[in-house]
Design a binder for these strands. Structure first.
Lengths: 226, 226
DNA sequence: AGCTCACTATTTGTCATACCAGTTTGCCGT
DNA sequence: ACGGCAAACTGGTATGACAAATAGTGAGCT
């Protein structure tokens, strides 16, 4: 996939296979930097740059004298990614994320219809109420996210939940933009309410139409902004 | 946030504020490594390690012999995190992966119906033919994967494709087991053919039913194998 | 014996330097 | 004004050196 054959990136792959082959897990140590350089015929500079990548990914922790041990703080790494608040979301990031959500949340109608309970409906409405009364842009965006997260959680797929957890920071930013620049909080509240109604009544057409509209609004704005 | 005293991580923060202060956005160039070292009284080694972090975060792109420019591929970076520990992940989430596929591929019927062209249909059938004639378990599983990947690619969501790319090893394993222990290659071929027929005829009920059946088989195996 | 503490050896962190292989820039001659 | 060519610049890697940190060792004391 990677066209660039930078020695560092090659080394990262080699380290990956090393971890794989030796069946190393969390807590297991890696060889020292000089040793790795010896193993893969690279300078320590190259090894260190590769280790920086692994550290940035949150898969190794390095301490002087003790060396590198395998960890799994990838979630923290994701959080770090979005410490770059200064950067505007790129158009591509926005479109992809929103498109993905649309695919999931519109497409999950069938699963939702068979799985949603009365309690789920109540909870969705409660979250929506909370959102309307939430203070500040960030607070409303957070509740907006919680609403959609609850929807996805009803589907009951752990991996999907994990993906949403990862994408949470991006989604929050999108929602802040959406609530801020496109719709007032009340419009958002009404749209959510309509979605819940359609879900409760198992109205497939209405659900998918309203969900599409709900997600499309932000998408359209961004498309024309290009 | 981080209490880190490491010079590299300090430098990362400094670069972040530099980007902020100069109001740099996507496409803007950064000073050269030597220049940055001069600015922040650091060696080029330190600068390079900091740049590695930014690269891993997907916020800068470095073109050799030219320089670094700001980008925003943080989404890609997020999914790079999951290029690690595929084996371990797979054990935990065989069921979830299959459930996820079901969610996507059954749920994407609407998108598929509006987007699928004649050429897509032909290609799907060609892949299916290739699968029937493929040699060996692994070869058939690979073509099986290609069939489903093609389906997903029709949906046209880049992020979803990326997820499939990441899950590929897990899916291949599932498929090898499926083809090996449950169905003969011919059964698999027939199921695919039925799915393509339903897709071509825009028969929603048939498509979703057949796809569910097709994916459910592998799921059942792992349920009982557990 | 058991505990304390200083020391040693090893490892990471950072730096300075050098060289390579391309890219950009700008000057020079026409 | 323009084309071509060389110098300056840039990232990629290697090497060697030293500082800082710390796990492990072992001497010395109680």
């Amino acid at each position: 996939m990677h066209l660039s054959d930078s020695a560092v990136e090659v080394l990262v792959e080699q380290l990956k296979t090393l971890i794989d082959q030796r069946n190393l897990g969390v807590g297991d140590p890696l060889p020292s930097e000089r040793e790795l350089g010896e193993m893969f015929s690279s300078s320590r500079t190259t090894v260190r740059e590769a280790m920086r990548i692994l550290k940035a990914y949150g898969v190794v922790e390095v301490r002087p004298k003790v060396g590198a041990v395998i960890i799994d703080r990838r979630m923290d790494a994701v959080f770090d990614l979005y410490s770059f608040n200064t950067l505007e979301l790129s158009r591509q990031t926005f479109l992809e994320t929103q498109g993905f959500r649309q695919l999931i949340e519109v497409g999950a109608a069938d699963q939702l219809f068979t799985r949603t309970s009365e309690d789920d409906i109540s909870e969705l409405r409660a979250i929506n109420d909370t959102m309307r009364e939430a203070e500040g842009l960030h607070g409303r965006a957070l509740q907006d996210f919680n609403f959609h997260l609850k929807l996805v959680s009803i589907v009951g797929n752990q991996q999907l939940l994990e993906i949403y957890r990862i994408m949470k920071p991006v989604m929050l930013k999108i929602m802040e933009n959406g609530v801020n620049r496109i719709k007032s909080g009340d419009v958002n509240f009404d749209e959510h309410a309509g979605i819940v109604d359609a879900l409760e009544g198992r109205n497939r057409i209405a659900f998918q139409y309203r969900m599409s509209q709900h997600l499309e609004a932000g998408l359209a704005l961004f498309k024309e902004a290009d």
